Computed example of a mutant assay.
Amino acid sequence: MKNALSIAGVDPSGGAGIIADLKVFIAHKVYAMGVVTATTAQNTKGLYGMQLIDTKLIKDGINAIFDDIKVDVIKIGVVPSVEIIKTVADTLKAQKYLPPVVLDPVMSCKNGDIWLEGESKNAIVKELFPLAKVITPNRFEATEILGFEIKTKEDAKKACIELLKYGPKSVFLKAGEIDGASVDVFYDGEEVLFLETKRLNTDSTHGSGCSLSSAIASNLANGDDLKTAVKKAEEYIFNAIKNAFKVGSGCNPVNHFYNFY
């Protein structure tokens, strides 16, 4: 069994963040590990508060894992301050061997609300993008970084090309709805791959971005090449949304374990 490490925040309702990451790892038959960067007061209706974890504990937690366990892949989610971003980056760079890193550069919600701005946004790009085998921004995060809106497939293609210039090995852009379909775009510096799925009329999409990046990470840990990993992750998330069930009264989480039922 391969070992996957999530470095992310806690959504206590279990739909997003590190709890969702661990569910995805387990669903993909990967041993699940996690280092918490922040804990929140959150449910399907919204985010009500956040407490950051001390950077020394984050550093010590990452080092403790690497000192004892072979890490086959890393997924990075919420890193909500410049200090935490730099701590994660420096700690990972200090390891003797750095496995593939899947970075979900969490800056905004799926409705476009930006909650991570300024120096923290810049620090993610500067410190973490160069460590990533693949980054998985949504269209709003890409717009926040690049300064132009993504409305067409050509915009999405341009965004991937520009994002690659910041240092990641590849880009998986969650472009959202374009011309009535759900469009994601993968770019590895050579080929632009458009991945389209049918739009589902549902509110059960909470944590879909976190879960997609964790699915990519799981597939990489299990030995898939990157293109195969993103294609399989796309299919997994589509089915997890399609087979979701009601949990709360707001934006419900995807069904991470749909294959088990």
Results as ranks from 00 to 15, higher is better:
138 N>W: 09
76 I>T: 00
28 H>F: 07
118 G>H: 10
11 D>T: 04
196 E>P: 07
216 I>W: 00
247 V>N: 08
187 Y>M: 12
24 V>N: 02
22 L>G: 01
210 C>D: 13
78 V>F: 14
61 G>Y: 08
160 C>I: 02
148 F>M: 08
82 V>H: 12
115 W>K: 11
189 G>V: 09
112 G>W: 07
30 V>M: 00
25 F>T: 02
127 E>C: 10
34 G>W: 11
55 T>E: 14
115 W>Y: 15
165 K>M: 06
235 E>A: 12
159 A>N: 09
130 P>I: 03
162 E>I: 00
231 K>F: 06
195 L>H: 06
54 D>L: 12
79 V>F: 04
212 L>C: 05
81 S>D: 07
261 Y>A: 09
122 N>S: 15
30 V>E: 00
68 D>G: 13
255 N>Y: 10
215 A>S: 13
39 T>C: 12
75 K>T: 06
99 P>K: 01
141 E>R: 07
245 F>T: 12
243 N>H: 13
87 T>S: 10
131 L>Y: 06
166 Y>A: 07
227 K>H: 03
131 L>T: 01
207 G>T: 00
215 A>R: 04
109 C>V: 10
229 A>Y: 05
26 I>K: 14
187 Y>A: 13
258 Y>Q: 04
107 M>I: 08
78 V>W: 13
151 K>W: 04
147 G>R: 07
33 M>Y: 09
225 D>H: 08
103 L>F: 15
32 A>E: 03
9 G>V: 05
67 D>A: 15
202 T>L: 02
63 N>R: 12
132 A>I: 08
106 V>P: 15
246 K>Q: 05
89 A>L: 06
82 V>K: 13
20 A>V: 08
119 E>S: 13
24 V>Y: 01
187 Y>K: 08
228 T>N: 14
37 T>Q: 03
215 A>L: 02
136 T>Y: 10
90 D>G: 01
99 P>I: 02
14 G>R: 02
62 I>P: 12
77 G>E: 11
27 A>Y: 03
174 K>C: 14
170 S>V: 06
35 V>W: 06
206 H>K: 11
107 M>Y: 09
5 L>S: 05
